[in-house]
Design a protein around this nucleic acid. Structure first.
Lengths: 330, 330
DNA sequence: ATAGCAAACATTATCGTTAATGTCAAGCAT
DNA sequence: ATGCTTGACATTAACGATAATGTTTGCTAT
């Protein structure tokens, strides 16, 4: 276009004999700029290939129109499905998404520094933040929404599924399909929702007078699913409720490799219903929820705070209903 | 900390009776600042909870330390695996990753505007950019690397796998397992790598004197895999080479539902080997490559240009070797 | 004693955009 | 004709950090 240098407002201004401010306001369609001038500015901006510098704009306005999305791990279908929806909804409202991921050690203040230095307008996280993190966010009045992993002990907006009901429903399905000895493979008990799912399961067992074997509950934290699977296999377990579909699929794989028939010899229950977007060779019995609704609520909570329609300290813990999806594993 | 307002360099400066510049240089460990001063600055910065404003820094320095990652769709295991690796490598080098996704209409200049307005230092894309896009990037000297979808007609750094060899190897595996009538399910032929994979397949068929039925080649572009599958089923196809593992898994699902035995009645070949990170109930015969090496090369090409170690117009088309992974589908 | 120099910090200008005021001429009512 | 409004643009001052220069003090060498 103009031989290397990027086009700025001042370049347009000089070309037209106007000032930067007039050009800026013209492009933003402010009312105190003449209609004809606006038209000329828009045209020359296009001709000169002007691209707004949102860094400069952010600095001046104090808002970057960017939302941070925090994962522990990108390679998780459920997170990706949600992230995809979050991203497209934010995009439609003019917000960019910045990824922050790969934090095995949790959501610490160190990570927060990196996020805040980018001057994001808000944070949507799949990772439970530290108390210190929440404190810093609060003093800086940066909104944060915890997604998928509701934690009622934290003062933070949370949007999640009804884990208890999910655990209950999936257990019920396994019992209905003949399960007598049901195991649980979850994630570390520091993750509240894993505990809630297990609680739903034990309640269901009690209601149906099926015994609960606490030694069959596993909270994966480094050990391989394979090891756990083989332990369970030796213990005559006939059903496994898995924290999520990823674990369920892996369990299915080991079952198949060990020659265990699913569902006759082993019933498997998952959680998340990722098969709607990730086509699988088998159909899992799993727990589904209305993800669009969940994401819409998340975005709404976030943007309401970003735009200060909601006071910062007005926390909400939203739970969404779940339903069971019957597959070939029960 | 200090009651709401965010801490800036000038706040530290005032507290210590220094100037902003001195504080700035102290924090960046410049040589013209006294050791004792540096220490005092660092301490009060920590005490006051100073978080650098990288927006301001970016504006002044003209570099945002951010790389754009462009997808057509986030919900694709292969992209996720790669994105995860890209992200963590960039993060280790101090670069943030900004997601741009959901562009069904391709990588157009409109999207580019959004990316460039964010003043990213470079773009890593899984989507083939328009010619206009490349032209604008060139005038602005913004580096771009095309990943996974090498296109030799475009003047752009490309890093990809040896698609031809992959197509050849997978076809060879299907033939070895008894396939006589092999179909192909790819993506639209505007995507060069889909064509290259098919070319590898036809070459292999020729070498092994197995007939090629062009009517069995499909380039999915909206139709459902299910429809195509049933058409192929009616035509007595005994093997299907799928453009990627996602399609292969879906095909497997329909085969299972139709009662077709895999691999005896139907052989299935995939591409990408996503099962290393996504545990599947079955093991696919597929094409693998060294993803770490691919990503490392991508990052190297990118950062070398960002840091101007490589001239902008020095394009490279890097192909990585592939190998076959034998699964239960051949 | 004084030029010369370096260490350590201060001043000033700048990145590109935007908000808050200023200016000025045309149009209107009294 | 005078004052007042208002439309349309200009001026000035931020936003926070950093690069390019300045300034001061103390010390060394001659």
């Amino acid at each position: 276009m103009n031989g290397g240098k990027t086009v700025r407002l001042i370049d347009i201004a000089n070309r037209l004999g106007l000032t930067v401010n007039t050009v800026s306001r013209a492009l933003r369609d402010k009312s105190d700029i003449g209609a004809e001038t606006k038209e000329r500015v828009r045209n020359t901006a296009r001709e000169m290939g002007y691209i707004p510098n949102s860094i400069a704009s952010s600095l001046r306005k104090g808002s970057s129109k960017t939302i941070a999305i925090v994962f522990d791990n990108l390679v998780n279908p459920y997170f990706m499905i949600m992230a995809d929806k979050i991203h497209s909804r934010l995009d439609a409202r003019g917000y960019a998404s910045m990824i922050f991921a790969g934090y095995e050690g949790g959501f610490t203040t160190e990570i927060l520094g990196q996020i805040l230095s980018r001057k994001v307008d808000g944070i949507i996280t799949f990772l439970e933040p530290d108390l210190d993190v929440l404190r810093i966010l609060s003093t800086n009045q940066i909104p944060i929404v915890l997604l998928g992993r509701k934690n009622t002990t934290l003062e933070v907006d949370s949007v999640a599924t009804d884990d208890f009901k999910g655990g209950y429903l999936i257990t019920e399905a396994m019992i209905a399909s003949g399960a007598k000895k049901i195991a649980y493979i979850g994630v570390p008990s520091t993750v509240e929702c894993s505990v809630r799912r297990l609680n739903g399961m034990t309640k269901c067992l009690k209601d149906h007078q099926v015994p609960f074997y606490s030694e069959l509950s596993h909270f994966v934290n480094g050990e391989s699913i394979e090891q756990i699977f083989h332990k369970l296999k030796d213990s005559q377990t006939d059903a496994i409720f898995c924290f999520n579909d990823m674990i369920a699929l892996e369990v299915y794989r080991f079952a198949a490799e060990s020659g265990l028939k699913v569902p006759s010899e082993l019933k498997i229950g998952g959680f998340d219903d990722i098969q709607t977007e990730f086509k699988m060779p088998i159909k899992l019995t799993t727990i589904a929820s209305d993800r669009d609704e969940i994401v819409d609520t998340t975005i709404r909570l976030m943007l309401d705070k970003v735009r200060q329609k909601t006071p910062y300290d007005d926390y909400q813990y939203v739970d969404f209903d779940v339903r069971i999806v019957y597959g070939d594993t029960t």
